[in-house]
Design a protein around this nucleic acid. Sequence first.
RNA 1: CGGGGUGUAGCGCAGCCCGGUUAGCGCACCUGGUUUGGGACCAGGGGGCCGCAGGUUCGAAUCCUGCCACCCCGACCA
Length: 491
Amino acid sequence: MSKGIPKRSEDYSLWYNELVKKADLAENSPVRGCMVIKPYGFSIWEKMQAAIDTMFKETGHTNAYFPLFIPKSYLSKEADHVEGFAKECAVVTHYRLKNSDNGTGVVVDPDAKLEEELIVRPTSETVIWNTYKNWIQSYRDLPLLINQWANVVRWEMRTRLFLRTAEFLWQEGHTAHATKQEAVDEARLILDVYTDFVENFMAVPVIKGVKTESEKFAGAVDTYCIEALMQDGKALQAGTSHFLGQNFAKAFDVKFADKEGKLDHVWGTSWGVTTRLMGALIMVHSDDNGLVLPPKLAPSPVVIVPIYKTDEQAKAIGDQAKKIIESLKAKGIIAKFDDRDTHKPGWKFAEYELKGIPVRIAIGPRDLENGTVEIARRDTLSKEVANIEGIENRIEELLEDIQANLFNKARVHRDENITKVDSFEEFKKVLDDKGGFLLAHWDGTPETEQKIKEETKATIRCIPLDAEMEEGTCIYSGKPSSQRVLFARAY
RNA sequence: CGGGGUGUAGCGCAGCCCGGUUAGCGCACCUGGUUUGGGACCAGGGGGCCGCAGGUUCGAAUCCUGCCACCCCGACCA
């Protein structure tokens, strides 16, 4: 009994940290605030990448790659942008080391100081818009719809695996358009793409909304976002899409000639999702036995474990397993056959539960006699004995059911944890007793938002997009409000 | 950078208060055997600059001083 993770209900943070490590997803690196994503964790991320990438390409976007380093002067061209990121930048000041005078190691060569410092990108708007200036002259060059998969660095004070690390992986899209409406539509389209991915692949329900003035991206006109709820009642921002207006076009002087030959600045968007999505995936579905993966993102959605005493049995089971693997392959389902003789079946059962494999098939001597297999599903931990004839149809059905069940379970939990509150007293009580999302009236001022944050640690996650208009009064100031906004304590 | 805590085998820890043979336990690892339908058992074995540096002492994992690292709570944030 060496494995096993802490109980989720006892210490959610500890549970999360241990789960990430024990399920072989990631670990802290010796490098400050950075994370090592382990092969198993990365294979899940790769599946996420592949699905997102396909969606981008289907909506007309193409991939490109821009530099890791940003000259300091670029970053400071957009005033809000640099102010927003200044406090968390890693800066390259020198380009060479030399042997130290006392011969004990190397030191930074003071003679190798850079004329202009380079910033390790916290995001790429500036370097990309500097490039777009050269790429865009006419309306015929628009729209420009580009995405890059990259790493970025933000020097965070405190880090947590996947949720907040000093370096993280993401995709960042950067688009340029001829009209304001087209850019707004693009930002909204991407929000829908993200929603589609997070809900239909990750099985995580989200609320779409727009950020308040104080929560929006540094340099954006509007920041759209999707917000998800974790099992401990805290919110997690799962993706953002920004309408940049003409802010970066003006900062980098990106103009185009329209059909009439008139010059105007282009309209921009940028958007991104990060390895933080891995954190959401883990926190939303997993339980005390470990990770629970939705079938669409499991590196292999099915694993087959043989149970045998003799070599003859092992061989017969192996033959049976191969047949099953072939029939599943014909349906596009990847199954893994774990015939290692270095671990016992019970060990493997626990291991694949910890790693969240959606469906486990066990085949033993009893099954060989009866022409059956034992099927166990990870989400409910239930087992059934199924006839080997037509097993591929049963597995396919199960995988679809698990995918749907995970989403529904998460949606029920989310919906049960959205509370409408009408007074600040009620707000504080619900926040402390129950947590989750709170729908409340707000007077629209940053001052009130700040006060509520200071007193309760809750922030406005978003102003929901599809919410109904409703007259009311601000829970804090009593001033009039026309719509409820979404509050929560967040990661 | 403020407040708290922890550094002992790959991992998790005990020992420290009250200094004294060869530093211990669980897991993991190696060997042999029996096992295999929910993390097997028995026997044997390997592995330690006790965070680093200095000090006190006949003697330091243990006491003192300094430093370093990591974790938790704040401020910052995808």
